[in-house]
Design a protein around this nucleic acid. Structure first.
Lengths: 181, 181
DNA sequence: GTCTATAAGCAGATAGAC
DNA sequence: GTCTATCTGCTTATAGAC
């Protein structure tokens, strides 16, 4: 194994530890020292690799690549529900880190706002109505609320329910919001 | 004006400043110094009155008293929508402070969980079904997501819309979730 | 009663030894 | 290349002067 490979490997380990810790306690309470300890490396090494805590966080929340959905109107509700069903229970740490910190860390809030704005515009193309963007925003807000309540706050009834149960109950709500006519 | 009155008045001013600051930046980033500056008093005075930062936060999020709703089944959806319509745009700083910090401050998370559990049980009495608690949880999660998205993250389409517009769009969703049979 | 001064602790970041 | 030691800054909290 070359030096470059080794370096890349430890960098990935640090990034994974950072993602997990940011997801668990948020930006403020997560410390470089804590990340280093979780990754089994020296705190100075983390700084060496990532330069600053901000940069580490930026890298941690950078999702592995969310490909935009092709949206056929009349299908939007089902697509969203399917995405929710898939994500519930196995949301990646990068997304959770972003959710966890977005209310208290300005950079995280900004990142979420721009990512959401793009998603809203995308969804809105599937809702050809004057208030399409508002409807899309509501769909996003509902999905976000659900993830926060279940994965971050761990509200009991939501955590015990299966993704299928939840999706079934939400279907009428999503259909009414994404109805194209 | 007696000493006691004066003291009570400054205490209220500090508490108001604390509520506003906690609501704006969350528990971690809000400092005693910042609260004191906003209230126009000495930082040491804040400590004198409230003892510790935790206690100040505890007092700040203690809502002025939310009376439990009497729930007639078949009316739950309308009651909730009315509550949302009323709250949107004028959510009190105490609630916002709690929302802002609940993802990153363990005490706030715990407070929210217990308050929510009570609310869920309450709503569930209006949904006489085996999955009543799950449905009630979804209603709470949706309301929470909406408040967070609009008041805290300030997502544009949601902030520009009127409460009436939002409530109208959500009505079918709430009715399907709270349908009693 | 109110404020000044300071203690004590922990954070991120840096310089330099090995 | 990796780690030790340290610097600087900020926080809560306290002790004591006025």
């Amino acid at each position: 194994m070359t030096r470059q490979e080794r370096r890349r490997q430890t960098e990935e380990r640090i990034l994974g530890a950072a993602r997990a810790l940011f997801a668990e306690v948020g930006y403020e309470r997560a410390t470089i020292r804590g990340v280093a300890a979780a990754a089994g490396v020296d705190p100075a090494l983390v700084m060496q690799y990532f330069g600053a805590k901000d940069e580490l966080f930026r890298r941690a929340i950078h999702a592995p690549g969310e490909q935009p959905l092709e949206i056929a109107p009349e299908r939007l509700a089902d697509l969203l529900l399917e995405a929710i069903r898939f994500k519930l229970g196995e949301t990646d740490d990068g997304s959770l880190a972003l959710f966890r910190s977005m209310l208290t860390h300005p950079d995280a809030a900004e990142h979420f706002r721009t990512a959401t704005a793009r998603q809203v515009r995308e969804f809105a193309t599937g809702i050809p109505r004057p208030d399409g963007e508002l409807r899309a925003s509501l769909l996003v807000a509902i999905s976000m609320g659900l993830t926060i309540a279940r994965e971050l706050l761990r509200l009991e009834p939501l955590q015990e329910a299966t993704p299928e149960q939840i999706v079934d109950l939400l279907r009428p709500a999503f259909q009414s919001l994404s109805a194209s006519g």
